[in-house]
Simulated scan of single mutants.
Amino acid sequence: MASFSARLLNFWNSPTGPKTTHFWGPVANWGFVLAGLADMRKDPEYISPNMTGVMCVYSLLFMRFAWEVKPRNYLLLACHASNETVQLYQLSRWYSWSTSSAIKAADVKRVDAAPTAAASSDGKTA
């Protein structure tokens, strides 16, 4: 069994270690995940469904890239799988909010269109 220092040195010099973009690219991309997690505290009305959808497609594409690149980049794969999860959750929050808002707006229109109790049979109000 290799010592801790030997394993650390192997990681340091590996093709996906901290000397390469295979390491620092995914580290930087964790910012997307953190931003998505922070946005979960905000109201769903501020979620952009277009941008959230783009982030979902982006993460799917880069998960595929992380799997196919040689050597496989598991850190990038984990980062984009996490981002995909966060963005899909945000999209579901927005969808729930938008459908409930549409139902509320339709109810308000129905109430506004209903005749008032003060209206007389001839259409004149009291």
Rank of each mutant, 00 (worst) to 15 (best):
S98C: 03
F4Y: 03
N29R: 08
M1P: 01
F23A: 05
F65V: 09
P71Y: 03
D39N: 11
H80G: 04
F11G: 05
R64I: 15
G31M: 11
W30G: 02
S82D: 02
D112F: 11
W94Y: 11
I47N: 00
N83R: 07
C56I: 15
A113M: 08
S5A: 15
L34H: 02
S101C: 13
K70C: 07
L91D: 03
Y95R: 14
R7H: 04
V108M: 13
A81G: 11
P26S: 09
A106W: 03
A106H: 07
R64K: 14
L76V: 03
R72P: 05
A114C: 04
D39Y: 10
P15W: 11
E84S: 10
Y46R: 14
S48K: 01
L37P: 01
G31N: 08
A6Q: 14
S5I: 14
T85C: 12
D112I: 06
A35V: 11
T16K: 03
A105I: 01
I103T: 12
N29C: 11
W12M: 15
Q90W: 01
M63K: 00
D107Y: 05
T99S: 07
F23C: 04
M40L: 15
R7E: 04
G25R: 03
P26M: 06
K19W: 12
S82I: 04
A6N: 12
R93H: 05
K109F: 07
Y74H: 12
T116C: 13
D122G: 03
A114K: 11
Y46E: 13
M51F: 03
T20E: 01
F62N: 02
P15Q: 09
N83H: 08
T52C: 09
T116Y: 14
T99L: 05
N50R: 13
P115L: 01
E45W: 05
N13I: 03
G25P: 00
G53W: 01
L9S: 15
F23W: 01
T52I: 12
P49L: 07
D43Q: 09
R72T: 08
V57Q: 04
F62S: 00
W67F: 14
Y74I: 14
L77M: 09
N50S: 13
L75K: 02
M63C: 11
D43C: 11
T116H: 15
A28P: 01
G17N: 02
W30L: 12
L75Q: 07
K104P: 02
A66G: 07
N13Q: 09
M55F: 13
M51I: 10
V57C: 01
G25L: 06
K70S: 12
N13V: 02
D39V: 02
S98G: 04
L8K: 14
V108P: 01
